[in-house]
């Protein structure tokens, strides 16, 4: 992961933590401040770095949904998809 991608991920983690601490949502002014910071980072990235962020988001943000899916299967008595 390059420094630019790491910076994006760190900022994303800050945003998600702040949202969680606020009970789920931030004011649009605060979200706008985050947009400004993300935008400046995004502009400085190469296409490959932007793709790396997208891959990270696909893997990290999809994880909770996958876990929920597995829980449902276990509750219904099925073998979890990811059990080896």
């Amino acid at each position: 992961m390059t420094t630019a991608v790491e910076n994006y991920v760190e900022l994303l983690e800050s945003q998600l933590l702040e949202r969680a601490a606020a009970g789920g949502g931030l004011s649009q002014d605060r979200e706008g401040e985050y947009v400004e910071q993300f935008d400046l980072l995004w502009r400085g990235m190469s296409p490959q770095e932007q793709d790396a962020v997208e891959v990270y988001l696909t893997s990290e943000l999809a994880a909770p949904e996958d876990l929920a899916f597995i829980d449902v299967e276990v509750a219904e008595g099925h073998v979890p998809r990811r059990a080896a």
Partner: peptide
């Protein structure tokens, strides 16, 4: 849209 503007329904983390 870039991910910081794209809503979660489209795989991003934007809320505006």
């Amino acid at each position: 849209l870039p991910p910081f503007l794209r809503p979660a329904s489209l795989g991003g983390h934007g809320t505006l």
